[in-house]
């Protein structure tokens, strides 16, 4: 029965994504109205608090607030360090980690509403026959540091400086002001307040202009590129900080055929070439969103596995690979439109 409903891991993941899109955007109508009734106040996904119907809060909100109001202000005042600084930060990070430990970076690939919106846009792009743009091994490295900059500057640095009074108060929550998920999820509830830009002062205006431009860019670019915002998302880097601590892991073993194959990289929506060239812990890259597509499209038995406490939840197999190809190409083209991308191995050989 389950196998009929979910013939592939991708179908199962897509179902989970749609359910979680409902929960993160409209779930407040089910779980409750107040913050205390939410699934969590530190969800490792971009579930926006500006969405008045959401079912959980993104961890980046309390992080920015604590940098702004607690750490920054307390550093200036130099008092009440433990109760007002350390404890709230530890509570936020601990509640984030309690959730994170169960699913690791699958929060990005399975739960995040912005990730789902981008995947839906990409699927639509396939239907209307738009091209696919992807990063190759020689240029993907240029975009990867951006997510760390976003975390350090927008989530931690500027809020901290605003709290200390050395930066304007308007940059107390700069990431929220540029986050495309804030606009996307509120628009999904028919609320246009967040797409309306703040014009009261130049700083708010500038941040809002960046945010709205990025939202427009990401929304359209997702028709022709996979997960354009995920690549620079600070949640990806925050989750990457903890990914080695979770019992949920992506595992790849060394295999002779890997060098000439590389389908796993073609299937990867984050263009992670390391999953092809590396094995062991190096294959589980910081950009991985644990979508499982690499394991689905690996044509050899047990080479790539998703494990939880060492127990395989999903593992690659030749039989599954053949069945999967009949439905969709590694780069996401639906049945009857299978055109493979040229791999580096194919170019060389």
């Amino acid at each position: 029965m389950l196998k009929k409903l979910f013939p592939t891991l991708s179908r199962f993941r897509f179902t989970v994504q749609l359910i979680m899109l409902f929960v993160t955007v409209y779930g407040g109508n089910v779980v409750g109205h107040y913050a205390a009734e939410k699934i969590t106040g530190s969800l490792p996904a971009l579930s926006c608090a500006y969405d008045k119907q959401n079912g959980g809060y993104c961890v980046l909100i309390p992080l920015q607030h604590q940098m702004h109001h607690r750490i920054g202000e307390a550093l200036v005042k130099g008092q009440q360090v433990f109760n007002t600084v350390v404890l709230p930060l530890v509570i936020t990070l601990a509640s984030f980690f309690v959730f994170f430990v169960f699913l690791n970076k699958a929060f990005c690939g399975w739960i995040c509403p912005m990730g789902t919106v981008q995947e839906l846009a990409y699927k639509f792009g396939r239907l209307i026959n738009r091209p696919l743009h992807r990063f190759e091994a020689n240029n993907v490295g240029r975009v990867r540091p951006v997510k760390w900059l976003m975390l350090l500057v927008l989530v931690l640095g500027l809020p901290l400086m605003a709290g200390m009074g050395v930066a304007p108060d308007q940059v107390g929550d700069p990431y929220c002001q540029v986050c495309p998920s804030r606009i996307a999820t509120t628009l999904l509830t028919a609320d246009t307040e967040q797409i309306a830009m703040r014009t009261a002062n130049p700083i708010n205006f500038t941040l809002a202009a960046i945010g709205n431009t990025m939202f427009g860019f990401v929304l359209l670019a997702a028709f022709a590129a996979r997960q354009p915002f995920c690549r620079i998302c600070p949640m990806l880097s925050l989750n990457a900080l903890f990914q080695k601590l979770s019992p949920m892991k992506l595992v790849k073993v060394q295999h002779d055929k890997c060098d000439k194959c590389g389908i796993c990289t073609i299937a990867c929506p984050m263009d992670i070439h390391e999953i092809w060239h590396n094995h062991g812990s190096k294959a589980f890259h910081e950009d991985c969103t644990m979508c499982g597509r690499c394991a689905e499209y690996c044509p050899d038995d047990d080479v790539i596995q998703i494990k939880y406490f060492g127990v395989p939840l999903f593992k690659s197999s030749r039989e599954y690979f053949k069945a999967r190809l009949k439905l969709e190409s590694p780069e996401g083209m639906p049945k009857n439109k299978v055109i493979w991308l040229k791999t580096e191995g194919a170019k060389n050989g």
Binding site: E193, L220, A225
Partner: peptide, 29 residues
């Protein structure tokens, strides 16, 4: 009011600007 100090016109304009920047990606070679 929720829209006090906000502009839907500017917001829509910058969103469309972002889309314009992304539009070359949608064209095939």
């Amino acid at each position: 009011d929720a829209y006090a100090g906000r502009s839907l016109a500017w917001g829509t304009g910058f969103t469309l600007f972002g889309m314009l920047l992304a539009s070359p990606l949608l064209r095939r070679k």
